[in-house]
Design a protein around this nucleic acid. Structure first.
Lengths: 106, 106
DNA sequence: AAAGATACATTGACAGGCGAGGTATCTTAT
DNA sequence: ATAAGATACCTCGCCTGTCAATGTATCTTT
């Protein structure tokens, strides 16, 4: 891993929303995708991932449904909602803004 | 203010160290400086600031001494140590790295 | 005399990350 | 056959950083 929790904190939800913005997905796959995209430099801890799912679903940013796997472990799929899309857009703006401020300050 | 706590979280110490890297300073001045540099878009909350001072001094990244004000409120000045300088450099590297990763992921 | 700025400090609540633990299924190697 | 490892889900409770609220004291401006 190689990135401190406190640097990623606050981005967990955006990362999930961004992935779901491309296509519906499930927890395990999202995490694998993160690892691939970052060449193994980052991964979400499972407890972090699932608690983020809970928050996002509660705030109606995502919805979930069970996949219809014939075999293998069951998968709970998530899809992003309009509310989620709006939050993602706002979070992206906030991130661009935060980057500038932090670059000024350190 | 206009930047979420969770986006700045983990940068508080770097911001303080960066300021002290320029010259010794005290809490109130550091915060004023942050507000100026960001055109009022960001400020550290006092409780956040002083708890960061405590952590940084405990980890020997900064040292403190009382100013010799003839008048006005007393000031506790801080200076950065070698350990603090090293941490600042590392934090800067981590930040560059984190920026790239987050940009990839959201 | 009151209000506001300067300057410090503490307490306790809150929220997100995560280590540790648990369940169940399928595949691969021995 | 059996063990190991991958896939896939989930929860509990701790830790840590942020911050609202509160308190102290001094100086300046109205």
């Amino acid at each position: 891993m190689s990135i401190a929790s406190d640097l990623i904190r606050g981005h967990t939800e955006s990362i999930i929303l961004s992935h779901l913005h491309e296509h519906d997905s499930y927890g395990y796959q999202i995490n694998k995708s993160i690892q691939e995209k970052t060449n193994g430099q980052y991964e979400l801890k499972e407890a972090t991932l699932y608690s983020a799912f809970r928050r996002l679903e509660e705030s109606q940013c995502i919805k979930s449904y069970w996949g219809d796997e014939e075999k293998g472990a069951r998968r709970r799929y998530y899809s992003i909602t309009q509310i989620g899309r709006a939050l993602l857009e706002q979070n992206k703006l906030d991130w661009q803004h935060a980057k500038e401020l932090i670059d000024k300050l350190i």
